[in-house]
Nucleic acid binder design. Structure first.
Length: 1032
RNA sequence: GGGCCCAUAGCUUAGGUUGGCUGGAGCACCCGGCUGAUAACCGGGAGGUCACCGGUUCAAAUCCGGUUGGGCCCA
């Protein structure tokens, strides 16, 4: 027989995926997809560039699966994804740190002596290597996007776009250099932006101290609180809030000054001596604990500041200008000299001889000791505090005054909020919640880094102080004092050697030796991925905002933010129109997966053992905006089922289609209820899937598909099986084949976004290898095929079957034993519906007759008993008589009467409903069970006729079992021989043609030969069977 | 210290905006069925104080307040 369909041969998902991946390569599917997109309505996308500095883990795979599912969905809907390229974040501390680690070095000095050119070359190599890892994972997870055309933040083109943006900001006065107190990592030797600092908060123990500062004019000590004792070394001023009340308290014989509202920290023993306003303290001199610098006589005074009482403490604030931004502001306002005795590595300089060379964090305890020696320590202690650490190297950060280039984002708060109001966030509360709140509090963004591997800051200065920000390679070459080196690498150190001629004074300009925060690079991705404005001007200009992005929640303050800041400042447009925020992946111990090393399998392991599609379907069927638990075992359990089910459906379909010569012709008008039902379900599912993807709810889309698979396998195919090979009704057989074909084909399309490999495999098998599922249109629901009432009806039928089986099970009667009747009570509408499906019900429940009734009244007997709790008090001693009488009456009659009249007169006693406890008893001879509102009663009587039929089915079952044991195909004919108990013989005699038909037997004959016979016991009766393949 | 989210069977979870009648599934477990999807398919059973405490209400898994535990974020 010619087989039209290739039947499955034990393929597993990983094998299928390997086959499909190879086919995609051979056929150049990606370029075909690109071809197909041409001319479509654009869908602007931007790949949030992963940092290529570590191997990808399963959490990264999740993000890619989500992106891919949406892209595939939209592509199938005819959208043209632009620019449809991958992207890689190549620069920055993460990469440098990885390289430093491999060198085993730990300082900028080591890098300098190794050579910045060589160091950066190694950084580049590292990026290229990890990028390859990431590409491999991405391809394997099925992320369909152009990798060849990917944007790299380290390419000259990308850098040029970044430079262009910097020049825009510079010319608008939004990028400038100033001294600011910024978070600073002493190990990395560079400042960080505030949102970078926010990435590294950790709980740690800090040393707090209360220190006495003598204020002679009031003959008391001002108490000062600090959690960074080392900053006392640079104390320059004390600050008070001029509008607040202060008091001098007496405590254990000493006089202490604190703000009234903070007096509680002195305890109840403290007695106020005199009170004054903060303003009265302003201008007084005090004796500092350390005096390493004189401040030209302008220091060591009490000054006024409103910052004071905002903070924890005493209401008297110690001011050390270089180490906190509030302090810096106060110092500048008072015009005092800057005294910063800490070097770039976070160590004290010779200005503090006792501490020279010690790092500030380590020096705190020593400072406390020194204060104590001077008799100025009031109290100290340790407390838990979450404080910032370097997000990459885990060194505690300090705050430090530095020259830094920053982007003035604070001025654009309102505009950023306005633009954000129109952005669609999923989950919605991110818009006004986390993200919105962050925008309200937007700080200026310190973007310069004193490092090596990054986009160089394109600002050159001449000795006369002129400044130029270069915005393109053309401009660089035009201003350059000498021809540019070729090939040109824009990175350090080559770029540092480029000198410009000052356009204003002709002087030689040299570059500011900073590189950029790598978050600035990625924030430019929406336009820099196009090499805008040097290429693709029109493409970018027509869209401006990206239509859709999705990344994990930790990007709220990272990439989501930087994009939004830059897009607002540069284009006055939101960076993206809709964003799906993803939760983290959790391992089996609820820890966030941060690398493959920590407990969770690598993507490679997962894909090769359970398959990428299984992992994808599992992940996409979860609430992806929340933390998602992931373990390989769960994937296997939860999803293998779905794939094997579809695989089996295809196996079933293909073998039957092959056997009956069906080759995919379209269905004619569908008349069979089951066909109409499953097609209705199919179209409903199409609607649900579309709605899910359109609402950015992958989970509901994927879930709808899974439910459909259940219905298709669990009800449609199960109920329709015989129709697939019925000889007598070829039209109906054709309808079944055609319907299943349509369901499977559409299913392959519906699965394509979530399970790109398996769906394509299925599609190709169904259509004989022509084309690919990813070049097809996404299905559109045919409303005319949807019949909601039919779907409701079928659900009712399934409930009735469920209840019927429960009833049989309860009575312990095998399904293969035919029974007489089932009475189904399902209410008026239910009974009306179920009557239509009597044939189906009788087959499912294996009963001869189905009777659908509206009420179950006829099927139950009411048993009444006295409610002694009410009867007792009412009738006292005659209660016993009432009870006896109740025991004698017909319960059914009594209940009927009670329910209509409400009371009953019984032998001179008046009884109402509460006096009677009614219980139900099944009519004898029936087994009962219910599901929902459907009650099913199955008659239990088995007469001779039913018994014989049951025995015949026992014989059939055993023959089938033996056929299977011998590995026969269903079209193979057999000859059956038997010897058995007379009852069984009688059953065989009555049902011989039926048995032959069911078992594909040419003959069923009594035989004495025991050769190859198998012995069975049926209902304690012996049965010997031989099954032989019939000769041709 | 502050904000947001979460807590439902052994595990993964639906439902919660609109309070209401027996809180649904799947996996695992036990029992059974089916036998032209068979290293498949189907059914049944057991398993839940819906984290804890309190409030509103005739009625709370659902609304409100608090506690505990977890996640994320801010400073």
């Amino acid at each position: 027989m010619r087989r039209y369909y290739r039947e499955p041969a034990g393929e597993t998902l990983p094998v299928i995926e390997a086959e499909v991946l190879a086919l995609w390569g051979e056929e150049g599917i990606l370029s075909k997809v690109k071809e197909r997109m041409r001319g479509g309505e654009p869908l602007v996308f931007c790949e949030g560039p992963p940092t290529a500095n570590r191997p990808p883990h399963m959490g990264d795979a999740l993000t890619r699966a989500v992106k891919d599912a949406f892209l595939r969905y939209h592509i199938m809907n005819g959208r043209r994804v632009v620019p449809y390229i991958a992207g890689w974040d190549c620069h920055g501390l993460p990469v440098e740190l990885e390289v430093e680690r491999s060198f085993g070095t730990d300082s900028k000095a080591a890098i300098e002596s190794y050579g910045v050119d060589r160091f950066n070359a190694v950084c580049r190599e590292s990026v290229v290597r990890y990028k390859a890892d990431w590409e491999e994972m991405s391809r394997r997870v099925g992320y369909g996007i152009d990798y060849e055309g990917a944007y790299l933040t380290m390419s000259n083109e990308y850098i040029e776009s970044v430079w262009w943006s910097l020049k825009q900001l510079h010319s608008k006065g939004l990028l400038s250099k100033s001294s600011q107190v910024v978070p600073y990592c002493p190990r990395c030797g560079t400042s960080l932006s505030t949102h970078e600092a926010a990435l590294g908060f950790e709980e740690s123990e800090v040393r707090w101290t209360l220190v006495r500062f003598k204020v002679p004019a009031i003959d008391a000590y001002a108490l000062v609180y600090t959690e960074s004792p080392w900053t006392l070394v640079a104390n320059a001023l004390l600050a008070v809030d001029a509008s607040k009340q202060y008091s001098v308290f007496e405590l254990s014989g000493e006089k202490l000054l604190v703000a009234d509202e903070k007096a509680a920290l002195l305890g109840s023993a403290a007695k106020p001596l005199r009170t004054m306003r903060g303003s009265e303290l302003v201008g007084l001199s005090y004796e500092p604990p350390f005096e390493y610098h004189g401040f030209d006589g302008r220091g060591f005074r009490v000054v006024a500041s409103t910052e004071v009482t905002k903070e924890e403490g005493t209401g008297v604030m110690h001011v050390s200008p270089p180490y906190a931004s509030a302090d810096c502001g106060i110092g500048a306002a008072e015009g005092i000299d800057l005294f910063d005795p800490v070097d770039d590595t976070g160590r004290f300089t010779d200005a503090v001889p006792e501490l020279a060379g010690r790092s500030v964090h380590d020096a705190s305890s020593e400072v406390v000791r020194m204060v104590e020696v001077k008799g100025l320590l009031f109290k100290w202690g340790l407390t838990k505090r979450s404080s910032p650490f370097c997000w990459r190297c885990r060194t505690p950060l300090m705050h430090r005054l530095m020259d830094a280039w920053s982007v003035r984002a604070s001025g654009a708060k309102e505009r950023m909020a306005q633009l954000n109001a129109g952005v669609r966030w999923v989950p919605e509360d991110y818009r006004d919640g986390r993200f919105g709140a962050f925008l309200e509090d937007a700080k200026d963004w310190s973007v310069s880094r004193s490092r090596y591997w990054g986009t160089p800051l394109p600002v050159w200065r001449c000795p006369s102080g002129h400044e130029v920000c270069v915005g393109s390679l053309e401009e660089l070459s035009r201003l350059s004092a000498a021809p540019l080196p070729a090939p040109l690498d824009l990175h350090r150190p080559q770029i540092d050697s480029v000198r410009l001629r000052c356009p204003e004074c002709g002087g030689e300009m040299s570059r500011e030796h900073y590189v950029l925060d790598c978050w600035y690079d990625s924030g430019c991705a929406p336009f820099a991925q196009y090499h805008y404005p040097f290429e693709n001007m029109a493409e970018f200009e027509t869209h401006r905002s990206v239509d859709f992005i999705t990344e994990s929640a930790d990007q709220t303050r990272g990439w989501f933010y930087t994009q939004h800041v830059l897009s607002t400042l540069l284009f006055d447009a939101p960076a993206f129109k809709s964003v799906l925020v993803l939760g983290n992946l959790l391992d089996d111990k609820d820890r966030v997966v941060k690398s493959s090393a920590e407990g969770v399998a690598t993507p490679g392991e997962v894909f090769s053992s359970v398959g990428a599609d299984a992992a994808r379907l599992y992940l996409l069927d979860s609430a992806v905006w929340q933390p998602v638990k992931f373990s390989m075992d769960d994937v296997r359990k939860a999803m293998f089922g779905t794939f094997t089910t579809v695989l089996n459906l295809y196996a079933f379909y293909s073998s039957n289609a092959n056997a009956y010569g069906y080759t995919g012709q379209e269905a004619k008008e569908r008349t069979h209820d089951l066909d109409r039902w499953i097609v209705s379900r199919l179209n409903t599912t199409v609607k649900e899937v579309r709605a899910g993807f359109d609402a950015l709810e992958v989970q509901s889309a994927v879930h709808a598909v899974v439910r459909f698979i259940d219905d298709l396998s669990g009800w449609y195919v199960r109920r329709s099986r015989r129709r697939f090979w019925v000889e007598s009704d070829p039209e109906d057989r054709f309808s079944a084949h055609a319907t299943l074909n349509e369901c499977l084909t559409t299913l392959s399309l519906l699965m394509a976004p979530a399970a790109p490999f398996f769906s394509d495999w299925l599609y190709r098998r169904l259509l004989g290898r022509k084309g690919s599922v990813h070049l097809e249109d996404f299905p559109v629901a045919d409303e005319s095929q949807i019949d909601p009432s039919l779907e409701v009806q079928m659900a009712l039928v399934r409930q009735a079957v469920e209840a019927g089986r429960t009833a049989r099970q309860g009575a312990n009667i095998k399904l293969r034993q035919p029974l007489d009747e089932a009475v189904i009570a399902a209410g008026r509408d239910g009974a009306w519906v179920l009557r239509r499906y009597e044939k189906m019900l009788s087959e499912e429940l294996n009963v001869k007759r189905i009777e659908c009734v509206e009420s179950r009244e006829g099927m139950v007997e009411f048993v009444v008993s006295p409610n002694l709790r009410t009867i007792g008090p009412k009738y006292k001693e005659t209660a016993a008589e009432v009870s006896r009488m109740l025991g004698q009456v017909d319960g059914n009659e009594l209940v009927k009467h009670l329910r209509t009249v409400g009371r009953v007169r019984l032998g001179g006693f008046d009884l109402c409903e509460e006096d009677v406890v009614v219980s139900e008893r099944q009519k004898s001879g029936y087994a009962h069970a219910s599901a929902g509102d459907v009650h099913v009663y199955i008659s239990l009587g088995i007469d001779k006729r039913l018994k014989i039929e049951g025995l015949a089915r026992e014989v059939i079952r055993r023959v089938q079992h033996m056929r299977k044991e011998q590995g026969l195909r269903f079209e193979d004919e057999v000859e059956v021989g038997y010897s058995a108990h007379p009852d069984i013989e009688a059953a065989i005699a009555s049902y011989r043609p039926h048995i032959c038909n069911e078992t594909h037997a040419r003959s069923v004959e009594k035989s004495s030969s025991t050769d190859g016979a198998k012995s069975w016991t049926v209902d304690k009766m012996p049965l010997e069977l031989t099954v032989r393949k019939a000769g041709h």
